[in-house]
Amino acid sequence: MAAIDERHIDRLVRRALNGDADAFGRIYDVYVDRVYTYACARVNDPHEAEDVTEVVFLKAFEAIGTYDRRGLPFGAWIFRIARNATIDHARRSARVPKPVEDLIEQVGPDPVTVEEQVVARVDDAIIKNAIRRLTDDQASVIACRFFWDMDIRETARALGRTEGAVKALQHRALRSLARILEEMGGDE
């Protein structure tokens, strides 16, 4: 997954605001796989994830005239739309993912360095199944940090949290995810 060049995205957004169809297409190309992966991790099947992805971009492109690049990075803005779309989808489907309890409350200085070890023989589908069992906040921080490659500051802005809260949330999410993956591995 290529890193996102914020200046390039800013240029594309400006061109999109001038009605440039090519710019809309390029913005879509940058974010579609991130949105789709997040959707796969929050809804129950790939076709639903495709529907959610479509809704996300329809809403984003419809509202792009309201986006203010001085306020929030565009990726964080897209993520907010994606998160709301998955929540709406889950409510409509009455299949709200069941959260697991947070196990660990203590937080280290940098949760990325917490090496939660899990069995290696897990594929992407198992990971997404595991993420589906996280709370919405936990899944969101996972998506921002690892699917979107946002740093802590940008993740905090995307989620409307403080940086400290994001660190704590990520720590709990990784611990929970590791436990879920262990359980799923044990079921094999």
Partner: peptide, 13 residues
């Protein structure tokens, strides 16, 4: 590590 697994989990539509 879990974070390595997560970074590799992004899949194309």
């Amino acid at each position: 590590p879990v974070d390595d697994l997560l970074r590799s989990a992004v899949e194309p539509m």
